[in-house]
Amino acid sequence: MSFYDALGENPMVVQYNSDICVVEGLNGTARQVLLRNVRSSEVCSVCIDSVKAVDHHALIQSAVAKDAAKAVWRSLILVNGFTPEQIMDAQSRCTIIVRTLSGKFTVQEAVNECDLSNF
């Protein structure tokens, strides 16, 4: 496995001890590679044979999918700062207000429908 790409513009990403690391240096004579852990930023020197190359394309696709899933989750939880339940409640109350203003509900009926008190 060649780590010489790590010294160029695009760092080589590898897996070591179930962690993702970036190759920061290579000592070909000693067969050692200098790694920086992506999560902890810790640096260590390990034997080249103990690391496994990571497919950059698969890594990028995974990150993009994870970001997209987070965006979808956030949009389900909050729409302009409100939960779906709050939005439905506001729409329901708006309908009651419109019916009251158009004369279809009395104020007392609107108050009862919204679970409010007169005071």
Rank of each mutant, 00 (worst) to 15 (best):
S2L: 13
S2P: 05
F3P: 00
F3N: 07
Y4L: 13
L7C: 03
G8F: 02
E9Q: 10
P11D: 04
P11W: 04
V13S: 07
V14H: 07
S18T: 10
S18C: 06
D19F: 15
I20Y: 04
C21D: 07
V22R: 04
V22P: 00
V23I: 09
E24L: 13
E24I: 06
G25N: 03
L26Q: 13
G28D: 08
A30S: 10
R31I: 03
R31S: 12
R31F: 02
L34E: 15
L35P: 01
N37Q: 14
R39K: 12
S41P: 02
V43S: 13
C44G: 06
S45W: 13
V46G: 00
C47W: 10
C47S: 12
C47A: 15
C47T: 10
C47D: 10
D49S: 15
S50F: 11
V51M: 02
V51P: 03
V51I: 13
V51Y: 01
K52T: 12
A53G: 02
D55C: 03
D55L: 02
H56I: 07
A58E: 12
A58T: 08
A58F: 07
L59S: 04
I60T: 12
Q61V: 00
Q61K: 12
S62R: 04
V64K: 14
V64L: 15
V64Y: 06
A65C: 06
A65P: 06
A65S: 12
K66E: 11
K66P: 04
D67P: 00
D67T: 05
D67H: 10
A68P: 00
A69P: 02
R74D: 12
S75K: 09
L76S: 14
L76Y: 14
L76W: 09
L78H: 10
L78A: 14
L78W: 11
N80W: 03
G81C: 02
F82M: 11
F82G: 02
P84N: 11
E85I: 07
E85C: 06
E85H: 05
Q86P: 02
I87F: 15
M88R: 14
D89M: 11
D89K: 13
S92V: 01
S92K: 09
R93L: 10
C94E: 09
C94A: 15
C94K: 13
T95G: 15
I97H: 00
V98L: 03
V98F: 01
R99D: 13
R99V: 06
R99I: 05
T100H: 08
T100D: 03
K104M: 07
K104V: 03
K104Y: 03
F105S: 06
A110M: 01
N112W: 10
E113W: 08
E113R: 14
C114N: 08
C114A: 15
C114I: 11
L116C: 11
S117C: 12
N118M: 11
F119Y: 02
